[in-house]
Design a protein around this nucleic acid. Structure first.
Lengths: 186, 186
DNA sequence: AACTATACGGAACGATCGCCCCGGTTAGCA
DNA sequence: TGCTAACCGGGGCGATCGTTCCGTATAGTT
């Protein structure tokens, strides 16, 4: 495609929009009005639409990097020496991230290539941990995804705002113990 | 207050509205347009507002009974002989109900006296099970509520619609095992 | 049957939000 | 410095949705 290089001000504005979107989505989830993002970026709504065809496209652009990071991390851990620790370590990271970023639940729903990517990475991580006997054998990757989504939502939708660190620790412990193979040591 | 008895047609319509709301909320969650509920009931939107001051009030009216039932069930089980079975049996019922009713997540958020009611019932159920050594001692009633909400959301927000019975069984097993005291028999 | 309080339906209002259009501005270049 | 293509801002459109208003219909009574 003929992507001519952007004019300097256009490039600057695009960057400002992405940065504002990252902040706004993380703070309030996908639901933030686009006008608010534009205002935070210090541009008009029209400018946002010059750079992204829709609000959803902007969200995907912002979230794609995070998802890719997550998947990469999962793959990296999966290659490590201790599959069990790799698995539960990843769970911990996910819980921590979810507590800080309010857009994680929506991020999981983002369709496209990312979906396949994260699925395969989780599948790998899970299988390794199961083969090593660290995780119960009866659950599947879709099960895991659903459980993680539940964990993410739990961690941030507490009646008094996001869960404190101590509570998050306990919730994570419950899920982790439930996923462990019966008889395996923690 | 001077609640004069309703006119016959008014009473009929109120009933139709409540029935339609029950169906619509269960099928699509709190998000269903009120006009849709009215259409399903075969009345105009104005009629709905004659009987309920707001959409939220209608939702509360519909959901209150279900919450009360749940709390009653929890209390009844808590008095039984086997606190462990009482606890885990309740979990199973909740999972089953959540799979069928799409408005469960919103229902949990309903404020007012019901909130206190269900909280106390769950607290009772949990404490008994903990005292009997069936459930790990480190979690609290707020933890449990958050976990249940996660379970409810997990059970119904699977990418391919509500979870199948087999998957629901597995998810429930993971949560239940995570909640069990270390070393307690299933 | 006539009368009136009560209730009904649905058009319309106001707010919200995603998205587009266009008159004005500016960057980049000669 | 002047020209033009690229870009910007923000007002505005159209859709959705909760809610209200009011002219009409009807239940209940005398």
């Amino acid at each position: 495609m003929g992507d001519r290089p952007l004019r300097a001000d256009a490039r600057r504005n695009r960057e400002k929009v992405v940065r504002a979107a990252r902040e706004a989505f993380a703070a309030s989830g996908y639901g933030v009005p686009l006008d608010e993002i534009a205002a935070l970026a210090g541009v008009g709504p029209g400018t946002v639409y010059r750079h992204f065809p829709s609000k959803e496209a902007l969200f995907e652009a912002v979230v794609a990097a995070r998802i890719r990071d997550l998947a990469d991390d999962a793959r990296r851990r999966a290659d490590g020496a201790d599959p069990g620790e790799a698995f539960f370590g990843f769970l911990g990271r996910l819980a921590g991230e979810a507590a800080a970023k309010r857009d994680m639940p929506d991020a999981i729903e983002v369709a496209g290539a990312l979906r396949q990517d994260i699925f395969e990475a989780l599948d790998l991580l899970l299988r390794h941990a199961q083969r090593a006997g660290a995780v119960r054998g009866d659950i599947t990757a879709p099960d895991l995804i659903v459980l993680l989504k539940g964990l993410i939502l739990s961690v941030q939708d507490t009646p008094q705002g996001p869960a404190g660190e101590a509570q998050r620790e306990r919730l994570l412990a419950v899920l982790a113990d439930g996923l462990r193979s019966p008889g395996a040591t923690g």
